[in-house]
Nucleic acid binder design. Structure first.
Ligand SMILES: [Mn+2]
Ligand SMILES: [Mn+2]
Ligand SMILES: [Mn+2]
Ligand SMILES: [Mn+2]
Lengths: 217, 217
DNA sequence: TTTAATTTTTAGGTTTGCCTAAAAATATTT
DNA sequence: AAATATTTTTAGGCAAACCTAAAAATTAAA
């Protein structure tokens, strides 16, 4: 299996296992990678033989230590390139994912480490997601959803739970980005939407759906 | 055919056609890409059907206008990434080729153009090779081999004809790099090796083999 | 605890990009 | 102009990564 394809499977399994401790299910992996379940069954059997995942028929799969390391290294590369694209090339946070999705498969350890150094060893990517260090350790980040901030409370935006282009672009449009200070001015009883003030300046209403995808500390 | 593979064929054909105006021969393409001639025959048939090359059985192939454009774009990407690796990440000129060989296949026009801008729209890569501009035009460079510089003549080093790691490393070791001023102090009658002075400072003997792979103007 | 629904796997195909061995065409020597 | 050597193509195979359709296993609902 080409390392490109392999890395995509491992990354998908990693992501799904974060959400569901049992492991990743065939159907979910297929959905994540936009392929058919039958294809996934084939692939995970091989990944199992290679010692990258724990595979048992009809069970959810989990990563072995080795598989996890590869997944994390791929995530490291992805997020470092995202920082490069935004900080050095001036792309916006909603434009970078497809490019990073390809750059993450360039596999030269030395390149990754020099890139990290060039970028100042960043700990977070442009979406606020932590960048694992060279040993695979993530910076500890215990964030809460904006919906968890109480009335008149203030919090700093540190991340997002949804990475779709439309969500990112919308946040841009209403002036919400990483690092801003958010104060909850009002929580509408009817629909739980909230009025917030951004950096003590402009105020804007957010639906509960939006607020629940904004992470703060 | 995946664009990755396709670009490699077109680049190889471009390179061979530069050397031999007739076009590229099956065997030579195979050698260039480290694959077998039978595989090449298959591939060039398909590239012909796609309108990327002119293919006729038993004849050398040449690029169509479209094929040439793709080849040149790939070369542009390759050389821009090489500049990035050397100028920004501090790699040496003998370390970058394998990485550029992968980076060149990342296919986002906007990425390429922003990278070029970030690097200051360089006209030459770290090996002295010209970087085509976004329209595919190469900077005019009529260089001569160091062996063509006459006794007591002086020239500036602008490029190399051989890109092997061992050649690059050797030049490094004896202090020969792009931009230096070379004066021919002596041409040994016996073997045509030459004694040169580098920037009017240290002197060193070069075999004819080495001298013939150094380009100057 | 059957029955029904969902999920996963198996079986059988396709395309791509590579291979080896052998045949055919072309080029080079005698 | 033959004979020989070289190059290119054809023929037949293989593994990877995908697919659809159908069977089998598991899970959820009656
Ligand atoms: Mn991303
Ligand atoms: Mn990200
Ligand atoms: Mn190169
Ligand atoms: Mn180069």
């Amino acid at each position: 299996m080409s390392s490109h394809v392999e890395e995509n499977y491992l990354k998908a399994i990693y992501k799904l296992t974060e959400r569901n401790k049992d492991g990743a299910y065939t159907n979910d992996i297929a959905y994540e990678l936009n392929i058919k379940p039958a294809t996934v069954t084939e692939a995970i059997k091989k990944l199992g033989e290679k010692g990258l995942i724990h595979y048992e028929k009809y069970k959810a799969v989990t990563l072995t230590e080795l598989g996890k390391q590869i997944a994390i290294k791929t995530i490291r590369k992805h997020r470092l390139w995202e920082v490069f694209l935004v900080e050095k090339l001036g792309f916006k946070w909603d434009e970078i994912h497809p490019m990073a999705e390809e750059l993450e498969h360039i596999g030269f350890e030395e390149l990754t480490e020099r890139l990290a150094q060039f970028l100042g060893n960043p700990e977070f990517d442009p979406h606020g997601d932590p960048i694992p260090d060279r040993d695979g350790n993530f910076a500890k980040t215990k964030s809460i959803k904006l919906t968890g901030v109480s009335l008149n409370g203030t919090a700093v935006m540190t991340g997002i739970e949804n990475h779709t282009t439309s969500f990112l672009q919308h946040l841009d449009k209403i002036g919400i980005k990483l690092g801003i200070s958010i104060t909850v001015k009002e929580i509408v009883d009817f629909d739980k939407s909230m009025l917030i003030s951004v950096n003590g300046e402009k105020e804007v209403y957010l639906s509960q759906e939006i607020a629940s995808n904004i992470l703060c500390k």
